[in-house]
């Protein structure tokens, strides 16, 4: 019988790896960001996106061509790009009369849109205009959010979530204390989010912990919130689902006392004293006479009782 219809498998190891990489992972890497230019862009908004791209650099991709997309009307093209280039975050720059210097930030979950926020860029000062020492690329930034709206307002809360997702890079277990050198601060004032970027300078303070001084390195921009498209709560909750493997299972009946010794409580089933095997000793062995007497007693007992009961007693003997 010839093989009729094969389900296509990757032929090369490289192809297999590429397919495996696109499959859902238990532990996800840093989210990639896709930077897309709209059909018409202003110099300002392109520079702005370029700066953000530079800040995010190893985890970002810049698309070179212009794309005639209106994300708030039809997001499918962006979703396609995100799927193709394997990047769940995106930035989209455009410029028109109604919405000048427009920057859209968003993210996808399972190749469909989750959140999307449109910002208008104002008061922009680029990375290059700050003539100061820059930070090394790829450092995990410290994120500071100022303003009560981030807690009270649902929309701002979600925007904070998006911004953290956008700028946090990968989750790390260890961090070099001297290597913390970049701060991104987001301040919510009225309907704007003021983005500032600083470099940390560690100064002596007389204690082990250093004193912090900040130096602005740019980019500086005020982001005016325009349109938003936020995910429904249940979808968001579904997206936030943690894998079972990552949850720590509580160990029962193990505790530690103040001295640091581990104590455990163990349950043992009830002891069956009748059937338990005790140690055999010569001294406890029955003599021949004793055994004979016992046999005699048993036979007498059996004779005395009724035939029905005899059977029972016999059964007991055999048991």
């Amino acid at each position: 019988m010839p093989v009729i219809q094969r389900i296509v498998k990757p032929t090369s190891h490289r192809g297999k790896r590429a397919i495996l990489k696109k499959e859902p992972q238990l532990f996800e890497d840093a989210k990639q960001t896709l930077c897309i230019k709209g059909a018409s862009t202003s110099q300002l908004v392109t520079d702005c996106m370029k700066d953000l791209y530079d800040l995010k650099k190893p985890d970002a991709q810049m698309m070179q061509k212009k794309n005639d997309i209106r994300p708030f009307e039809d997001v499918t093209r962006i979703e396609q790009f995100c799927q193709k280039l394997n990047s769940p975050l995106f930035m989209f720059a455009s410029h028109n009369k109604k919405r000048p210097h427009n920057l859209v930030m968003g993210r996808v979950f399972e190749h469909t849109l989750l959140d999307m926020v449109e910002f208008g860029v104002e008061n922009y000062k680029s990375l290059k205009e700050f003539k100061v020492g820059k930070i090394s690329t790829g450092t995990k930034p410290i994120l500071i959010f100022n303003g009560e709206v981030f807690e009270n307002n649902h929309e701002f809360g979600r925007i904070r979530n998006l911004l953290v997702d956008m700028f946090q890079r990968e989750v790390v277990g260890k961090v070099r204390l001297q290597g913390l050198e970049h701060v991104l601060s987001f301040t919510a004032v009225d309907n704007k989010i003021l983005l500032r970027s600083y470099r940390i300078q560690l100064k002596k303070s007389g204690t082990r912990i250093p004193r912090i001084e900040l130096e602005e390195i740019g980019p500086r921009m005020d982001l005016e919130i325009r349109r938003t498209k936020l995910a429904a709560d249940d979808l968001f909750k579904q997206a936030c689902k943690k894998p079972k493997e990552l949850k720590v299972k509580k160990k029962k009946n193990i505790s530690k006392n103040t001295l640091g010794t581990t104590l455990g409580r163990i349950h043992i089933g009830a002891q069956k004293l009748n059937s338990i095997q005790t140690r055999k000793m010569k001294g406890l062995k029955k003599t021949v006479a004793e055994r004979k007497a016992e046999r005699k007693r048993k036979s007498l007992e059996a004779d005395a009782t009724s035939p029905k009961k005899i059977r029972i007693s016999n059964g007991n003997v055999t048991d």
């Binding site: 499959e23 238990l26 989210k31 399972e110 979530n161 953290v164 997702d165 946090q168 260890k174 936030c240």
Partner: peptide, 20 residues
């Protein structure tokens, strides 16, 4: 180099793909 051991993140962020 002195590295600090960070605790696990508390801030809940959505995943890119659902749990396999």
């Amino acid at each position: 180099a002195i590295v600090g051991i960070l605790p696990k993140p508390v801030f809940v962020l959505p995943r890119a793909r659902s749990v396999p």
